[in-house]
Amino acid sequence: MQNITLQVEGMSCNHCVNAVEGTLKNIGASGKVDLASKTVDVSFDESKVSLEAIKEAIEDQGYDVK
Rank of each mutant, 00 (worst) to 15 (best):
1 M>V: 06
1 M>R: 04
2 Q>P: 11
3 N>K: 15
3 N>G: 14
4 I>P: 04
4 I>F: 01
5 T>Q: 05
5 T>H: 07
5 T>W: 00
5 T>I: 02
6 L>G: 09
6 L>A: 04
6 L>E: 03
6 L>F: 03
7 Q>E: 06
8 V>N: 04
8 V>P: 00
9 E>Q: 13
9 E>K: 15
9 E>G: 10
9 E>F: 15
9 E>P: 12
10 G>D: 06
11 M>P: 03
12 S>I: 10
12 S>W: 13
13 C>Q: 01
14 N>M: 14
14 N>S: 15
14 N>G: 14
15 H>A: 06
15 H>P: 00
15 H>S: 12
15 H>F: 14
16 C>W: 07
16 C>A: 07
16 C>G: 00
17 V>G: 04
18 N>S: 13
18 N>H: 15
18 N>M: 09
19 A>N: 06
19 A>F: 12
19 A>P: 05
20 V>Y: 03
20 V>I: 08
21 E>L: 12
21 E>I: 01
23 T>C: 08
23 T>M: 05
23 T>R: 14
24 L>A: 04
24 L>I: 10
24 L>P: 04
24 L>E: 03
25 K>Q: 13
25 K>M: 06
25 K>G: 13
26 N>K: 15
26 N>C: 13
26 N>E: 15
27 I>H: 11
28 G>S: 10
28 G>E: 09
29 A>W: 01
29 A>S: 13
29 A>Q: 05
30 S>E: 10
30 S>K: 15
30 S>F: 12
31 G>C: 03
31 G>N: 02
31 G>M: 04
32 K>F: 06
32 K>P: 03
33 V>A: 05
34 D>A: 00
34 D>K: 00
34 D>F: 00
35 L>S: 06
35 L>G: 08
35 L>I: 02
36 A>W: 11
36 A>Q: 14
36 A>Y: 02
37 S>P: 01
38 K>F: 01
38 K>P: 08
38 K>M: 07
38 K>N: 10
39 T>P: 06
39 T>D: 02
39 T>G: 05
41 D>F: 14
41 D>K: 15
42 V>L: 13
43 S>K: 15
43 S>C: 10
44 F>S: 01
44 F>G: 07
45 D>F: 09
45 D>N: 14
47 S>D: 07
47 S>M: 10
47 S>A: 15
48 K>N: 11
48 K>I: 11
48 K>F: 02
48 K>H: 10
49 V>F: 04
49 V>S: 07
49 V>I: 06
50 S>P: 08
50 S>M: 09
52 E>L: 12
52 E>Q: 15
52 E>A: 10
52 E>W: 09
54 I>K: 02
54 I>R: 09
55 K>D: 01
55 K>R: 15
55 K>I: 10
56 E>S: 11
57 A>G: 05
58 I>D: 13
59 E>P: 06
59 E>V: 01
59 E>R: 11
60 D>W: 01
61 Q>Y: 13
61 Q>H: 03
61 Q>A: 01
61 Q>D: 08
62 G>Y: 06
62 G>Q: 08
63 Y>N: 03
63 Y>V: 01
63 Y>W: 04
64 D>L: 12
64 D>N: 15
65 V>A: 07
66 K>M: 12
